[in-house]
Design a protein around this nucleic acid. Structure first.
Length: 517
RNA sequence: GGGACGUUAGCUCAGUUGGCAGAGCAUCGCCCUUUUAAGGCGGUUGUCGCUGGUUCGAGCCCAGCACGUCUCACCA
């Protein structure tokens, strides 16, 4: 315990000696700061004098300016800040004694009337003060806030207290998700929740996290996608379903990747992928209307227009154009291999044809897709769950929406032919044997479901975190996830890092799971 | 996993050629009844990430480790 905390604990002790409840149970506030500011922002001092209402408010002290027998404090209620004015001659003696023991960071309630200061700031003249909670630790500095990204993520609560923009991002996130839900509810979609723990991780190409169910004695996987379960619901007759929930992928962490991330998936019977490209444009139009001035965003210094419609370009055409390889050669595995050997000599040769295509796409195409673009008709080799194209059986009715070089959405006409699906899974098995450890696994239970008959349907997934990045201008996915995954700290700040001991201690904890709760 | 950079007071950051550990804010004391990063005067505050090495002497040089940030790879 450092000196600063010691001093604050002593103040807490003094409050107790004064008979002040130091951890009271409730405080009946009458207004949020936002309400007060919005209702009275136009009122002059004369008008405020006529307001009879007494306002009871509560918040955390984030600034404290003492001037002899009076003080101005700024309180922060999590969303807005409001100034309160304290005068010794306007307040009960006991409350003033409490005030003198306050620190920045403490949480208090106050009641009184509103007025405007000489400089025009709407301020509450405190007639009463209620102590609510002590902050034993000092807050980060008022002017620079909390800059250290690591501390901002590890101690997000501090970030939220001292960096107002952080709160704005998460408010926006909540409102966007709310609008998305509304959008689907209004079209008659049913919101569902499907398993996070799956015996066979399916629906995407990614490495899963493994976990263990002791009672059943089986390994389970945290889901990499909800897709195969949502399609079971289509078989069951749910005509329009969506799910907003976490997916888990055991991959690297980057500005665009967090191991757990939020995915919106939605499905509708009797529709195809064209319908969902249109629907996605409608959804983004709605979000534009709600959250953007003119449908434009500035993302990493670049202006991007989110105004639909978006151009639709074939996957193979894009590679052919950007990489400078003929379509004929692109469809020929041997010629493609030769192209990679010649033009990308530093790359390891991908183990499968599909991986070769992805290599070219990532290398030549992805970064060029800054303005919103639908990439369409993905080859069958890399789309094991999509229906084959009506026009070219080598391709599928699949699209991905790219914005700012990021994949935002992925949708297709869902493959509902169980025999074709089985064949696609078997092709995936072959890919796995060739060394593609992300190839999908056969899910026989899912195939059985398809065999009962899944109507034609469209399906799509949208990466919510990335969508929020676009609308908030955040340059990192960590800025839109409250608690992004960080390596756990070994030892407390100041302690010497003895990683071996720490790991051992953590391991010992794990051996008695029952003792943990 | 690779590379670059970083880690100094509660926070934001300086720290020169290797020679007493610094500033602002916070905090403590005094003054101050309309301040706005309030102001004035005076104090306190450190395992310089960890471990070792070089040196008469290391925040600074060297090695290893830990953690972070950025970036590349993989992925959405």
């Amino acid at each position: 315990m450092d000196d600063l905390s010691q001093i604050r604990l002593e103040k807490l002790q003094k409050l107790e000696e004064l008979g002040v409840p130091t951890y009271p149970y409730e405080f009946n506030k009458t207004h949020d700061f936002k309400e007060i500011i919005e209702n009275y922002k136009q009122h002059s001092n004369e008008e405020l004098e006529k307001v009879e209402q007494v306002f009871k408010i509560a918040g955390r002290i984030i600034a404290l300016r003492k001037m002899g027998k009076s003080s101005f404090l700024h309180l922060f209620d999590g969303e807005e800040k409001l100034q309160i004015y304290i005068r010794q001659d306007m307040m009960p003696e006991k409350d003033y004694a409490v005030y003198k023991l306050l620190d920045i960071g403490d949480i208090i309630g106050a009641s009184g009337k509103l007025f405007r200061t000489h400089s025009g700031e709407l301020t509450l003249l405190a007639a009463e003060l209620t102590f609510l909670t002590k902050s034993i630790h000092p807050l980060p500095e008022k002017w620079h806030g909390l800059q250290d990204k690591e501390l901002r993520y590890r101690q997000r609560y501090l970030d939220l207290i001292v960096n107002p923009d952080t709160r704005k991002v998460f408010n926006l996130r909540s409102r966007i998700i709310q609008q998305i839900r509304l959008f689907f509810y209004q079209q008659g979609y049913l919101e569902v929740e499907t398993p996070m723990m799956q015996p066979i991780p399916g629906g995407a190409s990614a490495r899963p996290f493994v976990t263990r169910h002791n009672a059943l004695g089986i390994d389970l996987y945290l889901r990499i996608a909800p897709e195969l379960y949502l399609k079971r619901l289509l078989v069951g007759g749910m005509e329009k379903v969506f799910e907003i929930n976490r997916n888990f992928r055991n991959e690297g962490i980057s500005m665009k990747h967090n191991p757990e991330f939020t995915m919106l998936e939605f499905y509708q019977l009797y529709k195809d992928f064209n319908y969902y490209m249109d629907l996605t444009e409608n959804l983004i139009s709605l979000l534009n209307k709600e959250f953007l001035e003119d449908g434009r965003i500035v993302f990493q210094g670049q202006e991007i227009s989110l105004k639909p419609p978006y151009p639709r370009k074939k996957y193979m055409d894009l590679i052919s154009e950007k990489a400078g390889i003929s379509l004929e050669d692109l469809w020929d595995e041997e010629k493609l291999k030769a192209f990679i050997e010649k033009n990308m000599p530093t790359e390891d040769m991908p183990p499968t044809y599909g991986k070769m295509l992805e290599l070219l796409f990532d290398h030549y195409v992805e970064a060029s897709l800054q303005q919103p673009t639908y990439v369409t008709y993905f080859p069958k080799a890399i789309s094991p769950l999509s229906k084959k194209s009506r026009q070219d059986s080598r391709e599928t009715e699949r699209f991905e929406l790219y914005i700012a070089g990021m994949e935002i959405a992925n949708g297709f006409s869902e493959l509902n032919d169980p025999l074709d699906q089985r064949g696609r899974f078997e092709a995936q098995v072959k890919d796995r044997e060739k060394g593609d450890d992300e190839a999908q696994l056969i899910d026989n239970d899912f195939l059985t479901a398809l065999e009962y008959g899944m109507p034609p349907a469209a399906g799509e997934g949208i990466g919510i975190d990335r969508l929020i990045m676009l609308f908030s201008g955040a340059d990192s996915i960590k800025e839109v996830i409250l608690f992004p995954l960080l390596r756990p700290k070994t030892g407390l700040p100041g302690e010497s890092g003895e990683p071996g001991e720490q790991a051992e201690a953590a391991g010992a904890d794990e051996t008695e799971p029952g003792a943990r709760r």
